[in-house]
Simulated assay, not measured.
Amino acid sequence: MPHSPLQLLDGLLDEEGLASTAHRFVLGGPFGAEPAETTAERLAHFADAGGLLVETSHSYAGGRAEAAVGPWLRANPGTLGVTTKVGHDSTGGDIPLSRDTVFAHVRSALENLGVETIDILLYHCDDPIRSVAELADTLVSLVEAGHARRVGVSNWRPERLSELATELGERGHTPVASYQFSLAEPDPALLEGSLHAGSAVLDVVRGHRLPLLAWSSQARGHFARTTPKEHHGKPDPYDTAENRDRRVRCRELAAQLGSRPETVALAWTLHHPGVWPSIGPRTTAQIDNSLQACRLTLTEEQVHWLRDGR
């Protein structure tokens, strides 16, 4: 019997059996900002390749992303699980996470996606003026209402994430965490409030055994190109001396393995148990390129060398 996305997500906590499968990848991309036929083609190709989870947000593409994914999900029920995020307006700005606002956005997301229940629902941001207990109560209420199967947060400070994990644990839930995580560590000043899963976040994730959805797992193409690329008219947050050195090492190891630098970098992310890398391919060929990382098994020495050069 095939596994559901949520069974596999829970199975990753056992750190066994799934390290080399396409199940570990989460499909993102420019939903709502590309032709509908392209979206349908990418979703079908990802599902056929063994992918199980698609990622979007209530705010992406000016609020159009969920509705772009919805028609395919409705036409192919049960084929792909879906994770979405609420807490940003259509411009990407944070909004207050009051219970009424969150429920209204979730009901809208359900309608847009055409599903009865969202597999993984995340707060896209924190609302620091509210207690973690209040925000946890809202998440539990969403599960109890049947709106979500699994809940979690993105871009929370590690101390708030730890408190949430405790609060939800006492209510019988293990939250999903969502942060930037890749071999390339971004300049935090250029991430515009988003957070990289550094050592403090990873300590919480590992201490509470939380699944980690790793967005920008390919560092916005850093390992596939040779020159920096602006992001929304701003400097490339991944263009640092340290990350350029890591790209050089990826090229060296890729040459030895008969692979590509970006594939090696993605295999580095896959090496970490309990991490689900989110990929943003724009074509089916790019999906296939990303899935090649499943076929690379890196040694512990290679993993450390890629990151630290020793």
Rank of each mutant, 00 (worst) to 15 (best):
L270I: 06
Y238R: 04
L73H: 02
G78H: 00
T91S: 15
N243A: 05
T166E: 10
G62M: 13
P35V: 06
V69N: 01
A184Q: 05
A49F: 13
G198M: 08
C125K: 14
L121I: 03
F103A: 10
V303M: 03
S108K: 14
L6F: 03
V248G: 04
K229M: 14
L110I: 09
G258H: 00
R157F: 04
S57F: 12
W72D: 01
A133W: 06
D48T: 13
S162G: 12
T240R: 00
L212F: 09
P96G: 08
A184D: 13
L213I: 10
E301M: 10
S57H: 14
T39G: 09
A177Q: 12
P211G: 11
L168H: 06
F25W: 07
T263I: 12
V132G: 02
A136E: 07
T138Y: 07
A177T: 07
T240H: 07
E262S: 09
H124A: 15
A68T: 12
S141Q: 08
L270F: 09
D137T: 03
T38M: 11
A67G: 15
A214M: 13
S4H: 01
G233A: 10
C125W: 12
G309M: 08
T263G: 07
G146S: 01
A67E: 01
E37T: 03
T240A: 03
H173P: 13
R251D: 15
E262Q: 10
V143R: 15
V132L: 05
R99Q: 14
S108V: 05
A65G: 04
K85A: 05
P186Q: 11
A44D: 02
A293E: 01
S259I: 08
E167S: 08
W276F: 15
H208M: 06
S290P: 07
L122T: 03
D94F: 10
E170C: 08
Q218E: 14
L121R: 02
Y238L: 13
A22I: 02
P35W: 08
A65P: 01
G51M: 10
A61W: 11
G146L: 00
A189V: 11
G50E: 02
L168V: 06
P186A: 10
I120A: 03
G258D: 07
H147E: 07
T299S: 13
D100C: 09
R130E: 11
P30Q: 06
G87Q: 10
L164P: 06
E134Q: 13
P228N: 00
T56R: 11
G70N: 04
R247D: 02
D137I: 01
E167L: 02
G114D: 14
S90C: 03
T174A: 11
L291W: 06
H272V: 08
N155F: 14
C294A: 09
D239I: 00
F103C: 04
